[in-house]
């Protein structure tokens, strides 16, 4: 398995293959929305997404520049995602609509599942491949490598994997794209990319 590219986004900035490509303006409280405007992509649905889906969407926009997804048929890319806090940030927002503001919000309720972000990536790219979302205590490279092996042996030609987390202390997105080619993906390598080293 060959790692083609990775993208990390957190409060400090955007890193493509560990290289800082843009620093976030930390005075902006809505740095995620700022990144969207900087991208010049027109996708009105972006504003309806929860932060998990927004981060995954933005991560993909950056990663897309370094990979060639047109090499693949619409069902050859599998999505393997995980995080620690599920959809907690949005869950709390949704709860607030019926405990404090009046009625439960249908548009927040539909984002109270972490795998909605893989649905958004599938819709954006018209991808019909396999998807799975795990809840893990922390980013676990060994686990991803194991899952990637499973999906390659099941027939996937490429994998978009990701760790997308949103909680009250931290918001981050780490995406990486792997092709079924000669190459070695190690735990150390993934850990370094995740930590922008």
């Amino acid at each position: 398995m060959k790692l083609i590219a990775s993208c990390k986004i957190n409060k400090t900035g955007v890193y493509l293959n560990s290289q800082l490509i843009s620093r976030n303006d930390l005075s902006e409280s809505n740095w995620i929305t700022e990144l969207y405007y900087d991208s010049n992509k027109e996708y009105p649905k972006f504003h309806k997404m929860d932060n998990l889906a927004k981060l995954a969407f933005l991560g993909f926009l950056f990663l897309e520049k370094k990979i060639n997804i047109n090499n693949y048929k619409d069902d050859e890319i599998s999505l393997i995602f995980s995080n620690a806090s599920s959809s907690k940030t949005n869950d709390l927002k949704y709860i607030n609509t019926y405990t404090n503001k009046g009625n439960p919000s249908p548009s927040l309720f539909v984002y109270t599942l972490p795998n909605i972000l893989t649905g958004e990536l599938a819709i954006l790219n018209k991808w019909y491949g396999e998807n799975i979302f795990f809840i893990q205590q922390k980013f676990d490279p060994k686990f991803y490598i194991e899952q990637i092996k499973f999906y390659f042996s099941k027939g996937a030609k490429a994998i978009l994997a990701g760790w997308v987390e949103s909680n009250d202390k931290n918001e981050e997105c780490f995406l990486f794209f792997i092709e079924k080619k000669e190459g070695k993906l190690t735990i150390e390598k993934l850990n370094k990319l995740y930590q922008n080293e």
Binding site: V110, I123, N125, N131
Partner: peptide, 19 residues
């Protein structure tokens, strides 16, 4: 077994049952 995405809508079922 397997899975497949509809690539259609986050909450509405696909009209064609594609996934």
């Amino acid at each position: 077994g397997s899975s497949s995405n509809d690539a259609n809508h986050i909450s509405g079922p696909s009209r064609t049952g594609e996934g």
